[in-house]
């Protein structure tokens, strides 16, 4: 089935594997194979064995990997292999520079981001990471891989708790990026993600106020950033994400009436709060059906969900 042209190199490689030869020429042969077929996991594994057995200079191996990564940046095995080499070296020096060269070609390479996360954890390199992230977001605020990295760094991959000052700082940061590009899903999703995982009722209500106040001065059309953002941006109220966030705020209120009433010092009754919020969700979803026709059925669904909860 599926005959694929075999290479002469493949024949030599099999012979060398059979005799279990660990030599310089065997190493060279694995290189040949990997260039022909970057996903050849056996060749990668054999290469690592040879490097270990002959105690070869691993810095030289990194140079080979740098070159290889330029041509085959999305090969899983390449990144696995690199981890092994850096682990053997016990020293991540130069790795961030290498990653910069990869990100220059593709800022969303998820192998590279996963590798970076591993470096942060394995060598405790958290310092300076937020500055690095901000630097990239200044160039491309729509790069979702960077937003994910920010969440990873801020929460230290923990979902348990986030201290209040950090949460406030992050909500503020996301909000500033939302104002810069209201049509950017990444910053909205980050904003909501923080709220859903760590936000208290106070924060949810503060968000509602922030959203409503912002429309009063909704002339923040990001005309200066046209080139930076690569596509024309809607105004805040022209963005579907703005209205969606309001739907979420009201859904939160319906699901947490007791907490909301406590914060409001009992100035509203449960039935009133529920009715108000339901009406709002209905109105907002109707607007979204117009604004975001591809998801029309979804917005109808969100309205229908209210009668279920």
């Amino acid at each position: 089935m599926l005959p694929i042209i075999d290479a002469e190199a493949m024949g030599y490689f099999r012979a060398i594997m059979r005799s279990n030869e660990k030599s310089a020429r065997a190493l060279e042969l694995t290189e040949e194979i990997i260039w022909l077929n970057p996903g050849h996991y056996t060749a990668w594994a054999y290469r690592l064995d040879i490097l270990k057995a002959l105690k070869l200079d691993l810095h030289q191996e990194l140079e080979f990997l740098n070159e290889f990564a330029l041509c085959n940046p999305k090969t899983y095995q390449l990144w696995h292999h690199r981890r092994e080499i850096i682990t053997l070296l016990g020293d991540p020096q130069g790795e961030f520079e290498f990653l910069e060269s990869v990100f220059k070609e593709d800022g969303k390479n998820f192998h590279a981001w996963a590798y970076r996360q591993w470096l942060l954890v394995a060598f405790d390199l958290w310092n300076g990471e937020l500055e690095f992230i901000e630097k990239i977001l200044e160039v491309d605020v729509r790069n979702n891989s960077v937003w994910n990295q920010r969440f990873f760094v801020v929460t230290r991959a923990s979902t348990i708790a986030l201290d209040q000052p950090t949460l406030a700082r992050e909500l503020e940061f996301a909000w500033s990026k939302i104002l810069l590009a209201p049509g950017n899903e990444s910053s909205w999703v980050y904003y909501r993600g923080l709220l859903e995982q760590f936000g208290t009722t106070d924060e949810w209500l503060a968000v509602e106020a922030q959203l409503k106040n912002a429309t009063k001065e909704d002339n923040i059309t990001p005309e200066d950033n046209g080139e930076l953002l690569k596509e024309p941006q809607p105004s805040l109220t022209g963005s579907r994400f703005y209205w969606e966030m309001l739907v979420d705020v009201h859904t939160y209120k319906i699901q947490h009436t007791d907490k909301v009433i406590a914060v409001l010092n009992g100035t509203i009754t449960t039935p009133d709060l529920t009715k108000q919020s339901r009406d709002e969700v209905q109105r907002l979803c109707a607007h979204l059906e117009e604004l975001d026709p591809v998801r029309k059925a979804y917005w109808t669904y969100r309205t229908d969900q209210l009668s279920v909860t």
């Binding site: 089935m1 599926l2 005959p3 694929i4 042209i5 075999d6 290479a7 493949m10 022909l36 077929n37 970057p38 996903g39 050849h40 996991y41 056996t42």
Partner: peptide, 13 residues
């Protein structure tokens, strides 16, 4: 007969 470009996929035939 797969096009030659798929030689890179020899391990995932």
């Amino acid at each position: 007969l797969l096009p030659g470009a798929f030689q890179r996929e020899d391990t995932s035939r």
